[in-house]
Simulated scan of single mutants.
Amino acid sequence: MNAPRYDVIAIGNAIVDVMAPCEEALLTRLGLNRGGMTLVDTERAEELYAAMGPAKEISGGSAANTLAGMAALGAKCAFIGQVADDQLGAVFSHDIRAGGIAFETPARAEDPPTARCLIFVTPDGERTMNTFLGASQFLPPAALDDSVIADAGILYLEGYLWDPEEPRSAMRRAIEVARAAGRKVAFTASESFVIARHGDDFRALMDEGKIDILFVNEHELATLTGEAEFEAGVAKVSAKVPVLVATRSAAGAIAVANGQRAEVAAEPVAKVVDTTGAGDLFAAGFLTGHARGESLERCLTMGAVCAAEIISHYGARPEADLKALVDTRLG
């Protein structure tokens, strides 16, 4: 097998995050799902945007955030996602390419506009996300370049994008292309509500041996397995995927690979400012280590270091030198 051109190619939502601090009372007044992610339509997105205080716009999207972290660590990355031919689409395209990530998906000329996620951040750093998927849910299978997918060591799929029909079909095709090329498939479950809607699909993919690396947090693990007890859930899933990575917020994370297990504590953080993207950046550190053949424990530590950096400031794209932080931590 030829050495891959890219360490990872990801398929995910092309979203611009619009973030603003807020008090708890505003969440209550707007009837928001505190700490969760809710899909909203155009009308609700406009209502929430009007209620926000001064906001900061930062390119986001779960898989794109992961690639931004990986690229900062020196990995070679490519992204597939759909933007519209509008201002936010231009912002997203510029930001991802400026991070050294290949992005060639053509912009969509017609409505709806580029996706945006309206994020309300309370004083404790918790983020409440309200996502208008816009153009991102119209990624067609025709947008895929099979040769590029086959030229990446790992195909990384974002669970959020499994919901709409077109990108779900695109991701199913990408899985087949990657597996035919002898590449690995990594999948992030993204959110419990996605599993509640599509858990049968995800469990079938695991049963069929089509997922090599699965990322979940403890809540997603419980939804996926029906097991309230964490270790019972770990046992059930780790028997079906070669590599399971499960994060537990402040309690750290575990990974199980072919029966071997490793655990790490969360890295210390002076102050949690915003938890947006913590799981995305954990995946960035872990996948970068995995692509380099690092041990399970070192992969987990790289993930924990990246997650700690991201929750120390607003936004889900790294601001500090991740490579320097990882090198300092691991030596």
Rank of each mutant, 00 (worst) to 15 (best):
A84W: 03
G99Q: 15
P318F: 11
G199F: 13
R44S: 12
T28E: 09
A253P: 08
L155K: 03
A98K: 13
A283E: 05
A270C: 00
S238Q: 08
I58C: 03
P318A: 03
G35F: 05
A250H: 14
Y6R: 01
S136M: 02
E294R: 13
G74V: 12
K76V: 12
I213W: 05
E24L: 13
F286A: 11
C22I: 03
A75E: 08
D7E: 15
Q87P: 00
P140L: 06
S62E: 03
L27D: 02
T131K: 06
P123Y: 09
T28N: 01
L133S: 01
Q82Y: 13
A257K: 15
L161R: 12
D280S: 09
V148Q: 12
E166F: 06
A266K: 04
A181F: 12
R248T: 01
R5W: 00
A196K: 14
A45V: 04
R203G: 10
A262Y: 05
A316I: 06
A51P: 14
E227T: 09
E191C: 05
L133M: 09
A255S: 02
G159K: 03
F138W: 13
K184N: 07
T225M: 03
Q87E: 15
M171H: 01
C306V: 07
L287I: 12
V237L: 15
R298F: 02
A143L: 11
E267K: 10
F202N: 07
A84R: 07
A115D: 01
A291Q: 10
R203A: 09
A71L: 06
I119C: 06
L39I: 15
A250C: 09
A170S: 14
G331P: 02
K184V: 05
L32Q: 10
L214Y: 13
N2H: 14
D95R: 10
G153F: 07
D146G: 06
V148G: 00
Y160Q: 06
P4C: 09
I154R: 05
N258E: 15
S169D: 05
S249A: 15
A266E: 01
T28K: 13
R183S: 11
G74D: 08
A253W: 07
A178W: 08
R298P: 00
F103N: 06
G233F: 09
I175D: 04
A150N: 03
P268G: 04
A324E: 07
L67H: 10
N2K: 14
L287D: 13
T131S: 07
